[in-house]
Structure formats: structure tokens, C-alpha cells
């Protein structure tokens, strides 16, 4: 298995922001993604998030991989909504009938005569854009942050230090456990087991047996790690200091303020003016 890298490849204005500012961006974009059902707004938000990822230095290869892996799921979503989403979109649009984009030939078995509607298509687009935005926000905010700064940022947000430390330390141990799993899978193959050649039940058992030595080995390691943590004075008490501190600079403070304002605006406009409600572009 190829172990992926989790860090952005270059510094950028976004990566220099304090982690709290990035979380504010995350929150604001998430609120907008959830509230907006207008496919134009949803797609615009998705493209803006994608642009932010590229500008922040997230690897193009990683973004391409994400898109490629999600494509079948999104296609299924589009087809599902286009063919089957009837009652819900009629209620949203207030239309009496759906607007067909195309109809499947009647001679086709089972699906013959089914209508792919414009309303369903646009709603499907909205759902795809929403999902992609929510997915892209995670690497945008986390990959652009040095794990050392992550801890401090979380602590400054009053997250208890043991929890903040647990998060970044998980990132530290991930490569180690990843290699462990790869070794165990290899060890199984060297005992004559190729899971892909087995039936479903045998495959469940074989794959699952990979996890057993990994988890037991991890618990041995955990005991060692506990000894190390205690030996280095880790106790979660107050008065802990930090080599790298996290100070809110002007850019970060402004970002947080802007995001708070953006959330308020999105919510008010959604409630008062229905901005973001589902519409079919072109006014059909």
C-alpha cells in the first residue's frame, strides 16, 4: 500500500493563518454548504473551496484522487435524483410536473420509459457540490497546518490538552501503524493467503485476522508510549508551556470576524429572502 503524505507542499497565505482562523473558515463554509440548495450557489462554493485548496498548496494529485474515487458515487447520486426524486423536488419548486430532460426508450426492460428530470438533475448537482465542499474543507484546514501548531491552536480554543495532544500524536503514529498493517498483510500472503482469491465469508475472516496482530501490537506499543509520556512529565496539569505559540495575527483575526459575519449573512438571507433555496436555473 502506498502511504499518502498529509501535508501541503508549499507555504501560502492561507497556510500562514492561525488554525483557529482556518476552523472559522471551515465552520462558515460548512454552514453555507448545509443551508444552500441552489445548485449555482452550491457549485460556486465548491469551486471556491477547490480553488482555495489549490491556492493553499494541497497536492493536485491528492485532489485528483479524491475526485476520481468519488466520481462513481456522484454519478449514482445524479442518476438517482434525476430518475427518482419526484415528490421532494416538486414540493421544493412548487411545480405541478417535472421537466423531462430525456426519457429512456420504452423497449428497455425494467427501466424503459423512465424520465430523467431537470429538477432532479439540478438537485443532484446541488447534492454533489455540497458533499464535495464538505469533503474538501478537511484537507484545506488540516493539511495546511503544521501538526505542532495544531496542538497549540486547539489548546488556545480551550480544547483540553490531552485531547489536542491525542489528535496530533495520532498523526505521528499513523505511518508506524500503516507500515505494521502492510507487514501483517504481507505476512499473511507469505503463509499462502491471498484474500482476493477467497469467497466472501473466508475473505471477511482473512482480512479481519490482519487486524488482530495489529491491534494487539498496538496495545503493546500503547503501554510503552504510556511509560514514555509519564517519564516525560505528561500529566495534563495546568502551567504547561509551548515551544511554538499560537498568536492571532491581524489576518487571522480579520478572517475569523469575516467568517462570523458571513455565517450571519447566509443565515439571515436564507431565512428572510430564501436566498439559497432550491431553484432550477433558467427558471423552468
Amino acid at each position: 500500500m502506498n502511504r499518502p503524505s498529509l501535508q501541503a507542499t508549499r507555504a501560502s497565505a492561507f497556510s500562514r493563518l492561525d488554525f483557529r482562523a482556518k476552523l472559522a473558515v471551515f465552520a462558515a463554509a460548512s454552514v453555507a454548504a448545509v443551508l444552500w440548495n441552489d445548485p449555482r450557489l452550491s457549485l460556486g462554493l465548491m469551486l471556491a473551496t477547490l480553488g482555495a485548496c489549490l491556492g493553499a498548496g494541497i497536492s493536485r494529485g491528492y485532489l485528483w484522487l479524491m475526485g476520481r474515487l468519488m466520481a462513481p458515487f456522484f454519478l449514482l447520486l445524479l442518476l438517482t435524483h434525476g430518475f427518482f426524486n419526484v415528490q421532494y423536488v416538486l414540493r421544493l419548486t412548487g411545480h405541478a410536473h417535472l421537466t423531462p430532460l430525456f426519457t429512456l426508450p420504452a423497449r428497455l426492460p425494467l427501466v424503459g420509459g423512465m424520465i430523467f428530470s431537470a429538477e432532479g438533475f439540478y438537485y443532484g448537482l446541488n447534492v454533489i457540490a455540497k458533499s464535495m465542499t464538505l469533503l474538501l474543507l478537511v484537507p484545506l484546514c488540516v493539511f495546511t497546518t503544521d501538526p505542532n501548531n495544531l496542538v497549540v491552536g486547539l489548546v488556545r480554543m480551550r480544547v483540553p490538552y490531552p485531547f489536542a495532544f491525542a489528535f496530533t500524536s495520532t498523526l505521528r503514529f499513523f505511518p508506524l501503524l500503516f507500515d505494521e498493517v502492510a507487514s501483517v498483510i504481507e505476512a499473511q500472503r507469505l503463509r499462502g493467503f491471498a484474500a482476493e482469491e477467497l469467497g466472501p465469508v473466508a475473505r471477511v475472516r482473512t482480512y479481519a485476522k490482519v487486524a488482530v496482530p495489529v491491534i494487539l501490537g498496538a496495545l503493546f506499543k500503547a503501554q510503552q508510549v504510556e511509560v514514555v509520556l509519564q517519564s516525560r512529565g505528561f500529566s495534563g496539569r495546568r502551567g504547561r508551556t509551548y515551544l511554538h505559540d499560537s498568536r492571532l495575527g491581524a489576518a487571522s483575526a480579520a478572517t475569523i470576524a469575516l467568517c462570523a459575519l458571513a455565517v450571519a449573512v447566509v443565515v439571515v438571507l436564507r431565512i428572510r429572502l430564501h436566498l439559497g433555496a432550491f431553484v432550477v436555473p433558467g427558471g423552468t
Binding site: 503544521d146 496530533t168 505521528r172 508506524l176 506499543k221 505528561f234 500529566s235 508551556t241 509551548y242 515551544l243
Partner: peptide, 29 residues
């Protein structure tokens, strides 16, 4: 210092690893 090199490194960078105990003990930055 323990036997297994990997299990006793708990942070994500070399300098933070050295700083970890000092941070826990409240030493000034």
C-alpha cells in the same frame, strides 16, 4: 530511553520531541 526507537517518539517533529518534556514541566519558551 527505552529499547524500541519508534514507540518512544510521540510528536510530529524532531524539535518538538525534545521540547515535549520541557513543555510538560512548565519551562519558559
Amino acid at each position: 530511553v527505552l529499547q524500541d526507537p519508534e514507540s518512544q517518539l510521540v510528536t510530529a517533529s524532531v524539535e518538538n520531541e525534545v521540547a515535549f518534556a520541557l513543555e510538560n514541566l512548565g519551562v519558559a519558551p
